[in-house]
Amino acid sequence: MADTAHILDYQKVQIARREHILFDDFDLQLSAGEFLYLTGSVGAGKSTLLKTVYAEVPITKGKAMVLGHDLNQLTKRRLPLLRRKIGIIFQDFRLLPDQNVYGNLDIVLRAFGMGRSAERKEKIDEVLEEVGLGNKGYKYPHELSGGEQQRVAIARALVGNPELILADEPTGNLDIENGLAIVGLLHQLSSERGTAVLMTTHNRLVLERYPARCIEVGNI
């Protein structure tokens, strides 16, 4: 039986990309509110591993529980229930270029069924303040620096009050200073909100400046 303290519990999991097995007999546990780094070389499967957490890539063998959902038994009908509890931050930001900052967050809340515009605005204002962009809601992605765009992406991940944030190389497109600032912000938000963070990185400076539990993964 999975430890109820673990919001993520992988036991003897196999993950494959086509005929290529990336992980075999792989164990991974993440506790509520914990910050965990996944490190490894390019091509080691870190991003693919994150995709299994929100059920974009299937588990081929083993037991995998995420936020109370058994990934091997997850139906399409229940998939949105899992994904609403997860915020995702990508290396390349993935903001909608034809929407301003407010619109990029508002579309998430509308998808979650938050109908009242005043309630959505209050929530958006709150998370933009948290990420240090309280006066930037009117701007479009192309008007922002890379660091600011990643802060918007973090706000987008936070706006649904997730229990788990997946951050896939969030510093990869940023300079050293902005990258460290983003990781510092993630640590701060994780601590203040009690939100677990699973972050992939190959940046050793990040690990030195903001230490946390770290698991190195590699091709088998």
Rank of each mutant, 00 (worst) to 15 (best):
T4N: 12
I7S: 06
D9N: 13
Q14W: 05
R17F: 08
H20S: 13
I21D: 02
F23E: 07
D25C: 07
F26D: 11
F26G: 14
D27Q: 07
Q29T: 14
Q29I: 03
Q29D: 10
S31A: 14
L36C: 12
Y37T: 08
L38D: 03
V42K: 10
V42L: 08
G43S: 11
A55V: 05
H69C: 12
N72E: 09
Q73V: 01
Q73T: 10
T75N: 09
R77V: 05
L79S: 10
R83E: 04
R84P: 05
K85Q: 15
Q91K: 10
R94C: 09
L96R: 10
V101N: 11
V101D: 11
Y102M: 13
G103L: 04
R110W: 02
F112A: 15
G113W: 07
G113A: 11
S117P: 11
E119G: 07
K123T: 12
D125K: 15
E126M: 13
E126W: 13
V127C: 12
L128N: 06
L128K: 09
L128Q: 05
E129Y: 00
V131K: 09
V131R: 07
K136N: 09
Y138H: 15
Y138L: 12
E143P: 06
E143L: 11
L144D: 06
G146R: 02
G146Q: 02
E148M: 10
Q149C: 13
Q150G: 00
R151D: 04
V152A: 08
I154Q: 10
V159Q: 09
N161K: 15
L164C: 10
I165A: 05
A167R: 03
A167K: 01
E169K: 06
I176A: 14
E177P: 02
E177M: 08
L180M: 14
L180H: 03
A181F: 01
I182C: 02
G184R: 08
S190R: 11
S191N: 12
S191C: 08
E192I: 00
R193V: 04
R193Q: 13
T195E: 06
T195H: 07
T195W: 00
A196V: 03
V197K: 08
V197Y: 07
M199G: 00
N203D: 15
R204P: 02
R204F: 03
V206R: 01
Y210M: 04
P211S: 09
V217F: 01
